[in-house]
Design a protein around this nucleic acid. Structure first.
Lengths: 348, 348
DNA sequence: CGGAAAATTGAAAGCGGTTTCAATTGACGT
DNA sequence: ACGTCAATTGAAACCGCTTTCAATTTTCCG
């Protein structure tokens, strides 16, 4: 019943043309007569022809695919930020005819996976996420000489030219701005619930937080700075503990909306009014599952769409792949302070 | 500097053997002498040889890849459930040497994408998610004669043999059990906040809910049954409205923990105590970002790990691909009722 | 030691495209 | 009608691996 897949040969036989001409016709080469092209296209559609991707890859050497290697941590957690990021990137790939290859591996197989994907030529490039300072993946990919781009960056300052491509949001300035805003509102007792402290972005946010405080001569006890997984539950647990102390903060800065939801729950369960009793600002990645887009928004936040970031990262990478002469990309995005209902002047 | 990728030919030349033997040696064919094999392996490691995947695909006809086509809906939302599901499947693929190919496309390009991936032989099979009754994707894939498995199922009852493979959780029984539990606690005014009503799983959950009610002669006003996107915000909005009615439910059943979090926020903001004033049961997919695993759990829920489901689905599909004689898989999982802090006897 | 059977290894034909270089066809000017 | 040059089309090599079938080498026994 189901005839075998039609190959180029089938198609050319059917048309009474050579494979060469048909191949060219489909690729829209100028030297093929217009009439022939139409004929070819029509026959292709008729026979439902699609070139075998592997044959194409073999012949051209291009895989037309981008790799994302995701490490499932110990608790097998795939964070929702990554999901939105991937969605953004994926859309761009699809629009450009690229495929997205995702490898879920444990951390100990991570480097090996990059190497294998590269050697077997399954992908034309990689996107790295969640860089850590001095990330070994970067060194490896440079050695393998395969194009890649980092979402985030390791440790270089913005102005230092780096030897790899990256696109990052200005985490430091973002939290500096947020902190300043709290300070303007009169807050002096501010706690920070940050992401895992080995990640570069978390380090930068903390730096921004501290810079703003320092600038105003305000200090924050070490015990009020938390580095944690960014889950609702952690937000709840940390805030619950924080709010029971005799001396408690009048404002809290969270590295994600998930954490903020947890904090909110803790506040509610202790009968505290968000915005009135305690102010809260969170980073808002504009995740589709947590939209903070009501007017006014539920949370005052530093907003920067991670979906859009995914799309931009993908674009840069593809540009780099398609024209190898392209210089490295290094780009910083600014997050926007969005005033919502979760902040207010400090209670006197 | 970076030498060209080593090919099989390079390797065999280096060893003074034929490509045939080297190829066989690497694939561990029995007819290759043990000593030769070791020599080959060693040289391969030395030269950092990895076969070109496209050449391999071309020669064997197997892509060693599974496709997941994800449609970004109008709001470009990628739901977090899917992320966990994918993670589970991805892990299985990686363990079996398969790649995961993800295509993010708009809904109108969906079918076309399945067709293209199949025709270009980029994948050996597909995993479908979120089936709708009479899903056109199923018909298409059957026509294309490519292996696939559905997470969920269309409309057949459990016992009816279906003409495609699927793995589903018993949504109907799950919500029937949950509803019964609420009834046992004395609740008679129960509202349902369900997922989008065109999705099969939502229809089944609703059926379970109604079956349990009917069984006890309890009725639920149509206005208390909601079909909605499963986001925190929707949960909040719906519950806010629901709780302001003069006659309000004493218990609420939610199709996801995300919705439950929103409901919880609405209750808090109206000064209601969850579990005491109003009981709440939600479906818990064990998403990594929302763990409900404290003891006792925050929410009473019907629990069934979607990560595990992803892994199981992947296993079934791979089995089907590797031995085409394998019969279709059709398997149902039961969700577990986990009693948490969000339910209590009805207030009299 | 001779020869058949068993163990290894190789040559070459695909797999299904792309691309180089040559061949054919057609148009045009004289 | 004929030569010339541009416009089209083809033949065949090649991409890197698998696999069929044949060739070669060993091993084993009478």
């Amino acid at each position: 019943m189901t005839a075998k897949k039609t190959s180029l040969k089938d198609l050319s036989d059917y048309l009474g043309l050579s494979q060469t001409t048909v191949s060219r016709g489909l690729a829209d080469y100028p030297e093929v007569a217009a009439r022939t092209k139409t004929r070819i296209r029509q026959a292709a559609a008729e026979l439902n022809y699609a070139p075998s991707s592997s044959a194409q890859k073999l012949a051209t050497g291009r895989a037309l695919a981008i790799g994302h290697v995701i490490t499932l941590s110990d608790h097998m957690t795939l964070n929702p930020f990554y999901a939105d990021f991937i969605a953004g990137a994926g859309e761009t790939y699809a629009d450009s005819g690229y495929d997205m290859l995702i490898s879920m591996v444990s951390r100990d197989k991570e480097l090996e996976t990059y190497r294998a994907l590269t050697n077997s030529q399954k992908v034309d490039g990689f996107v790295l996420s969640e860089p850590v300072p001095d990330d070994p993946r970067i060194a490896l990919l440079q050695e393998l000489a395969i194009p890649f781009i980092v979402h985030g960056r390791t440790s270089a300052s913005i102005s230092t030219p780096s030897d790899y491509s990256w696109l990052d949001v200005n985490n430091k300035r973002g939290f500096e701005t947020a902190t300043r805003y709290l300070l303007e509102l009169g807050h002096r007792q501010i706690a920070l619930i940050n992401g895992p402290d080995w990640l570069s972005f978390a380090q930068r946010r903390k730096a921004g937080f501290e810079a703003a405080l320092l600038d105003c001569g305000v200090t924050c006890p070490e015990a009020w700075i938390f580095a944690t997984d960014m889950s609702e539950r952690k937000g709840f647990e940390i805030a619950s503990q924080l709010l029971q102390q005799r001396q408690r903060p009048t404002a809290i800065l969270c590295s994600s909306m998930l954490l903020a939801l947890g904090v909110q729950r803790a506040m509610h369960s202790q009968g505290l009014q968000i915005g009135a009793d305690i102010s809260l600002i969170c980073w808002d990645d504009c995740l589709s599952a947590f939209d903070n887009q009501t007017t006014p928004p539920q949370f005052t936040s530093m907003r920067s769409s991670i979906f859009d970031a995914g799309a931009m990262v993908a674009e840069c990478l593809l540009a780099q792949i398609e024209s190898p002469t392209t210089l490295l990309h290094a780009r910083i995005l600014e997050a926007e302070l969005v005033k919502g209902q979760s902040t207010g002047p400090v209670k006197s």
